[in-house]
């Protein structure tokens, strides 16, 4: 059983968001980088749990990015992956990135490919579906539970106003979110072991780039809060009704 876990590097959730180069680039000054929380807390940890139950499971991590991703990949290996592949490219186009991961996936012959439900920087929520299409296997999105029984996966996925349970034979691509697993902290042994785990760097294959960033913008600042006295709740209702017109 081989699992491929897609890992991406994102700014820490408390990072100040700012841009440089005439608002064409994300300003990385002082930014702490983390593993995208959906990749780390849910898909990677679930893969590790599957390996803990069945020693025959191997976990490969894949990321598409420059050498600045290596610390993140090492951190992910410290949590539990067996080895990692980094496709050396700075592309931000989701089709290009998915094409790289699909190439790794086809070569490696994985039974299961996990992604996070989205990356918290570009919020694309695209890679899983694209990889599944390029590899031509089923894709189940927004999983909140993932169980494996032999070669059949039982997946609970979020739908509008509820959830549904899907059964699918491997191989499958699954995008994971809250519920699939619980966050873990790497321990010292894992951190030591991660140093010597294989991290293979490969060059990207040719693929089209279909989108490009024109620029970024920050939202306009709020005008400021209108405070209403706690003894005058009726006034709040009046403001919401007559001024904001939302009730």
């Amino acid at each position: 059983m081989k699992i491929l876990v897609c890992i991406s590097k994102t700014p820490d959730t408390t990072s100040k968001i700012a841009f440089t180069d005439g608002n064409k680039k994300f300003d990385e000054t002082g930014v702490q980088w983390i593993i995208n929380p959906y990749d780390e807390w849910y898909s990677l940890v679930r893969a590790i749990e599957l390996k803990e139950k069945d020693a025959a499971v191997t976990i490969h991590l894949v990321t598409v990015g420059g050498a600045d991703c290596d610390p993140i990949i090492r951190k992910a290996l410290a949590l539990g992956g067996d080895e990692a592949i980094r496709v050396n490219s700075d592309s931000t186009d989701s089709y290009f990135i998915a094409a790289q991961i699909a190439e790794v996936a086809k070569k490696g012959g994985y039974d299961l490919i996990f992604t996070g439900k989205e990356a918290i920087d570009y919020n694309g929520a695209s890679i899983g579906g694209m990889v599944a299409e390029l590899v031509d296997i089923p894709y189940v999105s927004l999983a909140t539970l993932f169980e494996l029984n032999g070669t059949t996966a039982t997946i609970t996925r979020e739908i509008e106003g509820g959830e549904e349970v899907a059964e699918v034979s491997l191989p499958v691509v699954v995008s994971c979110q809250k519920g699939v697993a619980e966050q873990r902290i790497p321990n010292m042994r894992g951190i030591m072991a991660a140093r010597t785990k294989p991290l293979q760097v490969v060059e990207p294959v040719a693929a089209d780039t279909l989108t490009s960033v024109v620029n970024f913008e920050l939202p306009p600042a709020k005008a400021g809060v209108k405070l209403v006295d706690a003894d005058n709740v009726a006034e709040l209702v009046r403001l919401l009704h007559e001024e904001a017109k939302v009730i």
Binding site: N123, G124, A125, S126, G129, V131, S141, E158, E160, T211
Partner: peptide, 22 residues
């Protein structure tokens, strides 16, 4: 929405069409 998140990117890859989500 949930359906769009599940399907749109997959269609994009099939058609080799650029996509902007969200």
């Amino acid at each position: 929405n949930q359906t769009g998140k599940a399907v749109a990117a997959r269609v994009a890859a099939r058609l080799k069409a650029g996509i902007v989500t969200g």
